[in-house]
Amino acid sequence: MSRIESTTFRDSLSVSFTVGAYGTAFGAAAVANGFSVVQAALLSLLTFSGASQFAVVGVLGAGGSAFSGIVTASLLGVRNGVYGVIMAPRLKVRGFKRVVAAQITIDESTAVALGQESRSESAMRQGFWLTGFGVFFFWNLFTLAGALGAQAMGDIRVWGLDSAVPAAFLGLVWPRLKSNRDKFLAISCVCFALAMTPILPAGLPIIATAFIAIAVGVRA
């Protein structure tokens, strides 16, 4: 690997630390929703995709089945697969390196890599690896801190953790609401999920909104 460009290094590190720090919120949310500290830590190590992780703890916390939790998390994880399609021809790695690259293919590593592409091809690759490993390190560290902290708290409502989870989801969706179509979809899904909650088993109203997204996306 050639010399690491200082701008790439700075971009990667700042993203890694800020994003990794959200791990605290995830660790706390997992424990608040009934997951153990070990399960929270494993989700961050193995699933390693914030939105999917929040989704699975959110669905089980709301009384949904393991199946509903897995499906919701996986639908959110499809995004990472698409990033993989974009990154593979740029990284050009095989075998074990490809396995490692796949595991750290997330929103942030892809975004930083593509952001460095105008600088140089090596800066783009460095951005991907540095951000991927950086977020992985801090995300896991802070997940553990959040999970242990929440375990020590007791009644989570006293600390407002039951509001931290929906606020985290809102923080994740907010920057994605760019066009009027996005906002219309978001509001429709809120109404649909609430209307279906008393009727469908917990978790299914959330999964069903993916079909609204498909309908809107195909029609447009």
């Binding site: 979809l185 999920a193 609430l194 008393p198 999964i207």
Partner: peptide, 28 residues
């Protein structure tokens, strides 16, 4: 259309999760 659906699915699921986590308690 595949790319469009790919950006819309997270919006749908995350919005639904905000709603369910804020306004429901055990299917009520």
């Amino acid at each position: 259309k595949v790319q469009s659906v790919n950006t819309l699915i997270p919006i749908a699921l995350l919005s639904a999760l905000v709603a369910v986590q804020t306004f429901t308690e055990k299917s009520k």
